[in-house]
């Protein structure tokens, strides 16, 4: 009898789980806040300032989604997650979405049952070396000691790269990025390898950044993107098209400076009109109102503005757009049409 009751309770719980998973949008609206999973701290992508306000590239995307859904870019609860807790936090419903520089891989998409809704940053693994070494290519690193974070895909990529080029290296295992910086500066390793964006941020903190170079080889593909749970496609659509709206806005020349003017009345460009809701009913199709994309863009600017503000060339991290330029500029950033 007790057992039956217990199983019954589990079933009810399971049903409730299914029901609640299917209506993330309603949950978010009822709560009045978007729970967004971010890192516990990564330069340029997510970090709290002295007043506890989160800032960064990933953070701005969370704010854009909150603005689109709830009409308030500050209606976000940022849930710091570590590399170990991020997927359970999303799977269990603790967060509604994850914007945490997470690489899109098949197993994460399929086996862990998540939906990557796109790519907001194309990263790749690189090498940071001292200029004194006189190395111009990663293939010259034969016999070098390399600082590498243990237990990450970067470790496997490194082994693959050196084996493919038939050269040897000596790994110096480290635990965190801070430790990597210290070890590299102390000369414990000749080269430090991690994602190129991380290397740029690390190099920017050095006393004399110009004494160090990031080698041109990028030895892995790390498409970083926001993700949501399987099973709630309506919610996935909203997050996906919020990212697309930011990207399209840059392509169409919609910026936070001219958006007020452009959205005041329908203009000459029909796609701009459809994005900004002055024409058509795209917002309604998503279950949102007509102004959703306008609010998302106003939250932190279009994709290019968000990039420039947090990690672009005017910031200390000084990342070039590179692969992350619009497709019209030779990059990979590309949004399907708003139609």
């Amino acid at each position: 009898m007790k057992r039956t009751v217990f199983l019954g309770a589990l079933t009810v719980a399971g049903l409730a789980a299914g029901a609640s998973a299917a209506a993330t949008l309603d949950d978010v609206k009822a709560r009045g806040k978007l729970n967004c999973g971010v890192t516990t701290g990564l330069v340029g992508f997510a970090a709290p300032d002295a007043n506890g306000k989160w800032e960064g590239f990933d953070v701005d995307f969370c704010r854009a989604v909150a603005a689109a859904v709830l009409g308030d870019a500050n209606a976000v609860e940022f849930v710091p997650t570590t590399g170990k807790t991020r997927f359970t936090a999303l799977a269990s419903g603790e967060v509604d979405m994850l914007a945490r520089n997470t690489t899109w891989t098949l197993s994460r998409d399929v086996d862990l049952k998540f939906d990557f809704i796109g790519v907001n940053y194309y990263d790749g693994q690189g090498f940071l070396v001292s200029k004194e070494m006189g190395v111009s290519s990663a293939k010259d690193l034969d016999g070098a000691t390399v600082c590498i974070q243990t237990g990450t895909t970067t470790e496997l990529n490194l082994a693959d790269f050196f084996r493919a080029n038939n050269i040897s290296y000596e790994p110096v295992p480290i635990e965190t990025n801070a430790e990597g910086q210290q070890q590299y500066l102390a000369g414990a390793c000749d080269a430090y390898t991690t994602d190129a964006s991380g290397l740029a941020a690390t190099r920017a903190t050095f006393e004399n950044p110009s004494d160090h170079v990031v080698l041109p080889e990028i030895i892995s593909k790390e498409p970083l993107g926001p993700l949501v749970r399987h099973g709630d496609n309506e919610w996935g659509d909203i997050v996906r098209w919020t990212l697309n709206a930011l990207i399209s806005a840059e392509e169409m020349g919609i910026t936070s400076a001219n958006i007020g003017e452009l959205s005041a009345a329908a203009g000459d460009n029909p796609e701009i009109n459809r994005i900004l809701g002055t024409e058509g009913n795209l917002g309604e199709m998503l279950g949102l109102d007509a102004d959703w994309a306008k609010r998302a863009i106003m939250a932190g600017g279009n994709y290019g503005e968000v990039f420039a503000k947090n990690i672009g060339e005017s910031t200390p991290i000084a990342l070039a757009r590179g692969l992350n330029a619009q497709w019209t500029d030779g990059g990979l950033i590309y949004s399907p049409p708003f139609r």
Binding site: G41, V43, G44, A47, P48, A204, T205, F206
Partner: peptide
């Protein structure tokens, strides 16, 4: 760790 993620204090 979070404080070091602020560009001002990284390092």
């Amino acid at each position: 760790n979070a404080i070091r993620a602020d560009q001002d204090w990284n390092g």
